[in-house]
Design a protein around this nucleic acid. Sequence first.
DNA 1: TCCGTCACG
DNA 2: ACGTACGTGACGGAT
Length: 887
Amino acid sequence: MSKRKKLLLIDGNSLAYRAFYALYNVVDKFVNNEGLHTSAIYNMKKMLDSLLETHQPDNVLVAFDAGKTTFRTDMFSEYKGTRAKTPPELLEQLPYIREMLDHMGLKWHEQDNYEADDIIGTLAKRAQSQDFDVVVVTGDKDLTQLADTHIQVDVTVKGVNEIKSYTPAYFEEELGIKPLQLIDMKALMGDNSDNYPGVTKIGEKTALKLIQKYGSVKELYHHVDEMKKSKMKENLINEKKIAFLCYDLATIKTDTPIDFDLADTAVQAQNSEQLVAFYQKMNFKSFLDKEVLDSQFNQNTQEEIAYTVLNTEADVDQLPEVTDGFVAFQLELFGQNYHEADFVGFSLSINGQYFVSSVIDLLTTPKLQKLLESTTINKRVFDVKRTIVGLRRLGITLKSVDFDMLLVSYLLNPDHNQNDLGELAQSYNCFDAKSDVQVYGKGAKKALPEDEMLFEHLARKVRTIESMKAGLMSQLTDHNQDQLFDEIELPLAFVLAEMEIIGIKAQASTLQEMSVVLSQQLQEIEARIYAQAGEEFNINSPKQLGQILFEKLNLPPVKKTKTGYSTSVDVLETLKKKSPIVSDILDYRQVAKIQSTYVNGLLKTIHPDQRIHTRYLQTLTATGRLSSVDPNLQNIPIRLEEGRKIRHAFVPSNEDSVIFSSDYSQVELRVLAHMSEDENMQEAFKSDYDIHSHTAMKIFNLSSPEEVDSNMRRQAKAVNFGIVYGISDYGLAKNLDIPRKQAQAFIDQYFAQYPKVKQFMDDTIEQAKSDGYVETLMHRRRYLPDIHSRNFHLRSFAERTAMNSPIQGTAADIIKIAMINMQKALQEKHLRTKMLLQVHDELIFEVPQDELAIVEKLVPQVMTSAIQLDVPLVVDSSYGKSWYEAK
DNA sequence: TCCGTCACG
DNA sequence: ACGTACGTGACGGAT
């Protein structure tokens, strides 16, 4: 006897509502980083797990309602017309529930014109005839009409664990009718929540009595004349049509035209990798962290590690000679900022043996220093730049590095930029080393553990670096990224380390003088604002400011944020005319920003050597750009004169030098011209036209540059920017403050004039869809899983990202190559000129006067020849006695 | 720790 | 109908 298979049919909408309202009182506690509510997703996951556990189904289908209009609304336009709108906090979660089902290997379906009920009814019948036992799970009693032999309908009472199971027998016992007679009952009594009326004055009790007596609506009307005279009889006769309409409305379809097979609902293996990524996106710590990881550790860290502790120079002398040609090395620091963080210790692996120490000075013993500075023994590390800078503080110059676990992981997937060795390894399913948080704790509790625990942690780190190398390097080759790592990122780390170590001189006195002036200004503006507001309040508080502007002064609130009124610049700009206080607030904001972020902020970061040593994050951005922290020297003001003055504080080390700056002109558009191979665009750059004027001619259909006025050029410039960002009519319209139709017309005209740009954009999106990622010229990758999302917002975002990333990323590749070549050129020519900063398309140097003539030629020459494109690269340079004057 | 705001390319 | 320009970091305030 063959065992019947089991099919679980789930009413997705009903369950999602249950999941959502069960956590309604804590709905705001379930919000992920991006502000998305996650309560229903979270609870749905728990419910699904519980259902799968209980029923152990072979097949599962989760059915959803497709939309408001169905064949039932065609029959009766008010059908479900009184339903309250789905709360937005739930609505936004539905796409993610579907995504989660995909990751879980469960099929889901929705179908235009039909409700979830009809999909369920149809499949239930189909499965019944194909030797399945069917369980329907829903919160909606209507579905109980499906109960039959081998079809059981479970109606949720509370959660999913408390249910009422409807079988034909239970039906008979409970109501004295058969399941299908429920439809007849509904025809008479109607349904309030679905908003169809039934026959006047007939409710559940009367309907049940009538159906028990006559068996069906049809039979009832057969005998309606025989009924004795009553108001009810009148109603029944008058509303016969309604009764039959309601009969049809209540009937769940069992012949929905479904375009897939029952076999397609077989439960698939869940995709753990995608699920983990999904949990991370949702911030579902409980599903991810503790239990999962801890159990992994218990199972996987069985393998012990033996290590030798080095305490004295004599211990170091006992170290074996390196015979493998390489060592793994970890320099442990307490804190992120390696320019000043305390040393914790170090570990290394030599010929498969592990050595650890917390005596940092042992690194400067001749044997170890020689090892680290050796040009023949390769070093394998996690975060080479951190290691270089840290060691330099001890007077050691790290040389010959052939593997950086962090850098390689980042190139393989820029999302894998976890700055923590243990966590990164864990994401690759290597559970040798714990994360630093697991060992050191976090926040106020962060502290060094006992020696034994620390030493084991350090030993495991180097073992992890070693064990990860082969796999990661071979993936690098698979990705065609060997050159990107060997010739760009790895050498760049050494260049960046030098720049960070040198730092840039910042004159505290200049900033302090500014601080005095700014404080004075702030006080004056503040007084004016208080006078106009009629009270004192905290201008820096958007909440208090909103109350003053929009409640007390009754200015019209233009835009709202999640938490209240928006008081951002564009809002205030539109309110400027209405009240003079608005201009004062804008001024206050501007001055306060300069004071707090730039004057006071920068003052705090000046080291005793009078210099600022930023850290470039080489493994952070999704596109391949660098970022700069502690402090960020890539967003020093320049656009407005008041802020630009900050640049007066950045000066050369000595009086005989100048600050010299070179920047690429229109590098992203040139990259686009190259990558798209668009002849019109390439022609503009080859002929050295003003690209924005050129675009203006194209989109405004002009025949000569003289016809381009400044407004046309401004708009064309915005279009050019838009193109690089992955244009949309909406975005362009907002930026230019023009109607969307006109924005669309600009875009259409642009693409007509630069047809291969359009082709390039389309191809890039296609590539993202088929490969899952996009690439730069140097094969830097970015994965875009949301390109397949059925959520419009996410999908559109992924599409724009697909268009932008290869362009922004290639520009990043180019300047990185230029920086490596630049450093080499300065060294080879024995110049004293130092490269100090990089600001995405700009390099800043400190140049002794007597080298100025050379550098003025050398820098542009190196930058423009970094890569050979089909269009020329152009560099503009300038210099002065401070960064301010290098403009 | 998150949010709104604003500085840069 | 939906509802956004791409990439970053730091600050003060609110929670």
